[in-house]
Amino acid sequence: MKQAILLLSFGTPRQPSDLLPYLTSIRRGKIPTERELKVLTARYDAIGQWDNKLLQTMGEDQKKTLKSLLAIDAMYLAYLHMPNSMEQAIESIATAGYTSIVCIVTSPFYSMVGTGAYERKLHSILRAYPDISCEIIKSWWNRPQFFEYWRSQLMAANPLQADTACIFSAHSVPTSTVGSYEDEVMSASNQIAKMVGLNHWYQAWQSAAPYGEWLGPTIESVIEQALIDGAKRIVCIPFGFVSDHVEILYDNDIICRNIVENAGATYERLPMPNGNTLFMEAMAKAIRERINK
């Protein structure tokens, strides 16, 4: 059996002209209005997306780290909403003669609208490749390297300092699709808090779409509550995400920062893993376990 590893990521625009097809793909073919496109453009402009090669090539860098950790050549990368698309990657894998694929998504937690979206698309694409088997690693957060990364970053932020409020956050999901997602995220934040000796902390959900019913409380409301509770320093821990992108650099570092600083308090946010070797080892470990099972 000839086996390939497929790393799946959301994708990110590299230039302003990418935004229309990118948002159209995210919205399942529904073309955004001129106003919606203008709002999104302003957000990417605000985080310096068009001049930041790190943001534009994050997936490639993570693939390089993972490939090095696994010491394999058969590593492919595909995006859900940008080229190199999942269809393109599967075609390349098939052309190279692979008959088995192990897939892992950069999101550490499984949700129906997150990893589930990749899963459904993979199954649809693979109908045209009956000779290729595929296994999907649905989540990989429960690996020691995941916890050690966030523990070490949080400890470096002096979380036990007086008047400090620590806020753990993950991407919100529609309430109709929560499943085990909320429990798994809460379990992970509890473990990290316990590792650093936090007696009091907050769990929040962020970056929800502006329509429908989404899992809460929102990070904005939690920050406001922490300030009411007397916090003078807010430390955001967006551990449900893996890299710097618009939902971190805009939603956290601009919107959340403004709420905190307008109240006269101090805003801090833990560094994202991006291609950090320790953190990526959690993904590598999950892949090795699946290959060797």
Results as ranks from 00 to 15, higher is better:
99 T>A: 11
67 K>V: 03
172 S>F: 07
196 V>D: 01
130 P>Y: 09
283 M>I: 09
197 G>I: 04
86 M>P: 01
98 Y>S: 08
91 E>V: 04
90 I>C: 07
124 S>D: 13
183 D>C: 02
83 P>W: 07
289 E>G: 00
69 L>S: 05
65 T>S: 13
37 L>I: 07
48 G>M: 06
255 I>A: 04
81 H>P: 02
104 I>K: 08
204 A>E: 07
23 L>A: 02
7 L>D: 02
2 K>H: 05
12 T>L: 12
116 G>C: 04
281 E>C: 00
288 R>D: 08
281 E>N: 11
34 E>L: 09
132 I>C: 05
167 I>S: 12
167 I>H: 07
117 A>P: 00
14 R>I: 03
68 S>T: 14
30 K>D: 13
76 Y>V: 12
41 T>M: 09
48 G>D: 13
132 I>N: 07
105 V>N: 14
233 R>C: 03
181 Y>R: 02
135 E>S: 15
291 I>N: 14
293 K>A: 11
252 N>C: 15
35 R>M: 08
59 G>R: 08
97 G>V: 02
273 P>M: 03
72 I>K: 13
131 D>S: 14
61 D>L: 12
191 Q>K: 15
87 E>A: 14
188 A>M: 13
231 A>D: 09
35 R>A: 10
43 R>G: 09
226 A>F: 14
249 L>N: 05
265 A>N: 07
148 E>F: 00
126 L>C: 04
25 S>P: 00
219 I>T: 13
237 I>Q: 06
161 Q>A: 14
238 P>I: 11
246 V>N: 12
120 R>D: 05
183 D>N: 13
181 Y>S: 05
260 V>W: 01
76 Y>F: 15
26 I>P: 09
139 S>D: 15
168 F>N: 05
237 I>R: 05
3 Q>L: 13
144 P>F: 10
102 V>I: 15
196 V>P: 05
118 Y>R: 08
29 G>Q: 09
65 T>F: 02
231 A>G: 07
281 E>H: 02
244 D>A: 02
212 G>L: 02
132 I>K: 09
201 W>D: 10
80 L>H: 06
36 E>F: 07
22 Y>E: 03
111 S>A: 15
105 V>R: 06
87 E>S: 11
8 L>R: 10
101 I>W: 03
249 L>M: 11
131 D>E: 14
267 Y>K: 05
223 I>E: 09
195 M>N: 09
171 H>S: 08
270 L>K: 09
275 G>F: 14
22 Y>S: 01
222 V>E: 03
269 R>Y: 11
144 P>Q: 08
133 S>E: 14
286 A>C: 06
142 N>S: 03
66 L>P: 02
203 Q>H: 10
70 L>M: 14
13 P>S: 06
